[in-house]
Every structure is written in C-alpha cells, then in structure tokens.
Amino acid sequence: MNLLAIETSTEACSVALVHGQEVIARSELAPRRHAELALPMADALLAEAGLGRHALDAIAVGRGPGAFTGVRLGVALAQGMALALDVPVVPVSSLAALALEAPEDEAAVLAVIDARMGEIYAACYRREGNGGLVALDEERVCAPEALVVPQAEAWNVVGSGWTTYADVLRGHLTGELRQAEGDRYPQARRVAELAVREFEAGRAVPPEHALPVYLRDKVALTLAEQGRPAP
C-alpha cells in the first residue's frame, strides 16, 4: 500500500511515506514553521519514491493531543489532501506515536508531552511482540503532580514533559526507571507504522470524520492567572 503520514502536533514537523514495504521520512524541529514545511516534505517524499499523489491509498495524521495550532494544521492538511484524492484518513494518537520512540523492551512506556500552562499530556502503553502497542490507561491532560500511572515493574519515559517535569514525574512511577528521553517528539514515521495497522483493520475514516483531539479547551492563561495587570 501507499500511505502518507503527517505529524505536526509538537515542535517537530515530520512527514513519512509508506511505499510497499519501505518507509521514508523527513523530520525537522521547526516551531511555527510547520505550515511552510509539511507539504514540501510530502512532495519530496513522493518524488523520491516516484509516486504521484493519486497513487496514495490513504492519508494518516497525528491527531493530537499537542499544540492546538499544530494539531489543527495536521488534521486540516490530511483532510484537504484526502478529499482532493478521494481517499480515507487514518487518525493516530500523537501520544501513541511518541510511545514508539521508547526502547523496544518489556518495560511500560509513559509518553508525556509538555502541554504548557503547568500541565502535561500523558498516556501509558506496553509494547506488543509484533511491534504494536497496548494502551494501559486513557490519554489525559493534568498537572504533573496529579499524574497517576498503572503498576509496572519497569518504565521507559519519552517526551518533552520529562524535560520540564522530570523531578515530579520520577516520583509517580510505580517501578524501576530504565530510560528517560525528554528530547523525543511524535514522528510521522511512527504515525505511519500505527496507521498501516489501523488501515488493515478497517479503521480508516472519511476525511470529514478525522477530528483533532485536544483534551482541553483552554489555550492560554488569563492575565490574572499570569499575575499580570489588565491593560
């Protein structure tokens, strides 16, 4: 199959192309430049594979949670391309894609993204032997101090939430911390891996049904919450 995946929910902008058994990808840490980078990355990958857009069977997208602007952009791009090509969309959790950046072992994985405003996006997973993921709890947004994780003998942690809140999060883990990498971001290559499974399981959706997942409605602190006087 031929599948194009887009992931723009965090500082990393990435696009990946599944072409038969091969996966090729582009990724760049480029805050606020996702809109100018994503489509050229997609065109470059298609050109490298020698494919036209109409050869695509589906568009996959990291549907969040993450930065509001980035999540909206990724979903809008996926919807627009899918509508133009008359193909379905495969929405994939950005936290699940991030979890695949953890080491491939039996330890539980905490995927955690800095949500700003003193909060984190978090979810826990366990890797399956066939390369898939099993969710151990629900995705949520919460203060790092309020995080509760399932029981596990060992943990790997990935994501920017660790960079910001390592001291707090370490105290909430229920077992040995094996590895923690705060400089990991959801990647389109991982979105593509999960999307192929979803597509083959018949869980692709019409473009209009591919919706972003924000987990919270509030995008910024008020002036009072920031401790600043009103103008």
Rank of each mutant, 00 (worst) to 15 (best):
M1G: 10
I6D: 04
T8F: 02
S9C: 11
A12H: 08
V18W: 04
V23D: 07
I24E: 12
L29C: 00
H34M: 02
A35K: 03
A35T: 11
E36K: 03
L37A: 03
A38E: 07
A44D: 14
E48G: 01
G52E: 13
H54T: 15
I59A: 00
A76F: 01
L85H: 08
V87A: 01
V90M: 10
V92Y: 01
V92P: 03
V92E: 03
S93P: 12
A96K: 03
L98Q: 01
A99V: 00
A102T: 03
A102W: 00
V109M: 03
L110K: 00
L110Q: 02
A115I: 13
M117F: 11
G118V: 06
I120L: 10
A123N: 10
C124L: 04
R127S: 08
E128W: 09
G129F: 03
G129V: 02
G131F: 13
G132K: 10
G132P: 15
L133V: 14
D137G: 11
D137M: 05
P150M: 12
E153L: 14
N156R: 00
N156F: 01
V158C: 01
G159S: 06
L169I: 12
L173F: 01
R178L: 14
Y185L: 09
Y185V: 04
A188W: 00
R189E: 14
R190I: 04
A192R: 02
V196I: 13
F199E: 06
E200F: 02
A201C: 11
V213Y: 09
Y214N: 13
L215H: 12
K218S: 15
K218D: 15
V219I: 15
P229N: 05
P231E: 08
